[in-house]
């Protein structure tokens, strides 16, 4: 009947840190197997390329823990990038403020629709995905137009850095720490867990359910926009045809990181580990050389399936009969 505390703890640790353990194992295996894997250059490239996904994934973690989903992040990533590149002609401030305001507004509207009208997050954010993507194609001549960054200070935000890492990596790290504190150590974070764990119960316990949901989608929109801004700075341009299917990669990373797709459990450390895990898998496949990068998706897919099965089993072990 009773799961022994020992077993329960083991399954809890696996749930929360499984991705981190696999990540560590993969890094060790990769270092042994490939000479060019464990180099500072390769590590930096994995970190830099993962940082954009990681920023979006942080927002997605809040959304998924609250019991929702946000499919619009891929489109908002592009939207943010294009608006940043466009805004850069008016200087650094506009290049930052314009995309954040716009993406935040989309996130806010989605949050309001979901929280106030009770519409399904899947549908609302799917509408966001299609609408914003369509808007991008419409204004960019079916993707033919690319917006070049006109402000050098803005470009340095994406390309400059210290210690071999670019600023986006540091920004991601800062955001991740802030998000951890927000999730674990503030009333808002607790409310997110409560809403995702038992929405009705949370309402009866006095949690402002609707407000919590609105904030979560607002945050996800802002972070997706920010990731787009940084990416535009890195590329010195806003490209409209990027980020197709990005939302699915992000969701995969969050779930691999141990956040339950059904809501109520998960965390930022797991998400970061999940993002890095996908990045390392990609890097390893590149090391093998004769495999195409499409195999990265095959491996990620298999891994995702494995994680979901493992979560089911772990969840059972943690519960009483």
């Amino acid at each position: 009947m009773t799961a022994t505390p020992g077993r329960e703890q083991v399954s809890r640790v696996l749930q929360q840190h499984g991705a981190l353990m696999v990540l560590a194992a993969l890094v060790i295996v990769g270092s042994v197997a490939f000479d060019s894997f464990a180099t500072a250059g390769n590590a930096a490239s994995v970190l830099v390329s993962s940082s954009f996904t990681a920023i979006i994934a942080v927002g997605m973690t809040f959304v998924i823990i609250s019991g929702g989903i946000d499919l619009s992040v891929g489109s908002l990533f592009v939207f943010g990038g294009v608006l940043a590149a466009y805004g850069s002609q008016y200087g650094l401030f506009v290049a930052l403020a314009l995309p954040l305001a716009a993406c935040g507004l989309v996130g806010l509207l989605q949050g309001l629709l979901i929280a106030r009208t009770g519409m399904a997050p899947f549908i609302v954010t799917l509408a966001g995905l299609l609408g914003v993507r369509g808007l991008m194609l419409a204004i960019s001549n079916e993707g033919a137009t690319t917006y070049l960054v006109k402000d050098s200070a803005f470009a340095r935000l994406g390309q400059g850095g210290v210690l071999g890492l670019t600023w986006p990596v540091y920004i991601t790290a800062l955001l991740a720490v802030a998000a951890m504190v927000l999730l674990q150590r503030t009333a808002f974070g607790q409310n997110v867990y409560a809403v995702g764990g038992n929405e009705q119960g949370a309402a009866l316990m006095g949690v402002p359910v609707a407000r919590t949901k609105v904030y979560v989608y607002l945050m996800s929109g802002l972070l997706a926009g920010l990731a787009g801004v940084l990416n535009a700075a890195r590329l010195s341009s806003g490209v409209t045809i990027l980020g197709i299917g990005l939302e699915l990669d992000v969701i995969a990373a969050v779930v691999i990181g141990g956040t339950l797709l059904t809501g109520g459990a998960g965390g930022i450390t797991g998400t970061i580990a999940g993002v890095l895990l996908l990045g390392v898998i990609q890097s390893l496949i590149n090391q093998v050389g004769n495999l195409t990068s499409a195999f990265q998706q095959v491996v990620s897919g298999l891994f995702l399936a494995l994680v979901v099965v493992a979560q089911r089993l772990l969840g059972r072990a943690q519960r009483l009969g």
Partner: peptide, 16 residues
Amino acid sequence: VNLVPMMSVARNLMLG
């Protein structure tokens, strides 16, 4: 019981 099963006992008790 109208609490949040996946949250810890303490966090359930002190929520809010």
